[in-house]
């Protein structure tokens, strides 16, 4: 199986992207108990890309000028700090520069009447991933979400 999948950044493709990551996680021996968190973080980040990455700008990365832009997910295993095994998913889009992690976090202490509807997606992604970072490549936004699998056998 390829370790990356690139599709048009449309909500209609969300299931396919999430199912691809789930299948890759399984193939890379990610513990099943992480599956829910991985899906949640990826859903939030991908919905964000589908809704905003290509909004208001000419789509780039698409096969044709008028087609929606593309989004790519790539899965890998990495050894992180303190020799932890990490499962990482990298999301890349070719839209305008945008770092969703710099947006102000919503007030989770507000009551029902004060709460705006929405704005919780990035908060959930930040809280549920073990590491989440953004970087801008010359022509792409890159978000990397990592999940600690377990300490390596050599460093219990």
């Amino acid at each position: 199986m390829a370790d990356a999948l690139r599709l048009e950044a449309l909500l209609d493709n969300l299931e396919a992207l999430l199912d691809f990551v789930a299948a890759r996680a399984k193939a890379l021996d990610v513990p099943p108990e992480l599956a829910g968190r991985v899906r949640l973080v990826l859903e939030e980040l991908l919905v964000n890309v589908c809704n905003y990455a290509y909004a208001g700008s000419g789509a780039r990365g698409g096969a044709e000028p008028d087609s929606p832009g593309l989004v790519e997910v790539r899965c890998l295993r990495r050894v992180g700090g303190q020799a932890t095994n990490l499962f990482c998913v990298r999301i890349r889009d070719w839209g305008s520069p945008f770092d969703p992690l710099t947006r102000e976090a919503p007030d989770t202490g507000a009551g029902l009447d004060e709460r705006p509807v929405g704005g919780l997606g990035i908060l959930l992604a930040v809280e549920m991933a073990d590491h989440l970072d953004y970087c801008r490549e010359p022509d792409a936004n890159v978000l990397t979400a990592c999940f600690i699998m377990n300490p390596t056998a050599n460093h219990p």
Partner: peptide, 20 residues
């Protein structure tokens, strides 16, 4: 329900506000 995302929270909050 074994999975909920912010979209689920959004529909809950929206329903709760209508009920309020």
């Amino acid at each position: 329900v074994d999975y909920i995302s912010s979209a689920g929270l959004r529909s809950i909050l929206s329903s709760a506000k209508k009920l309020r």
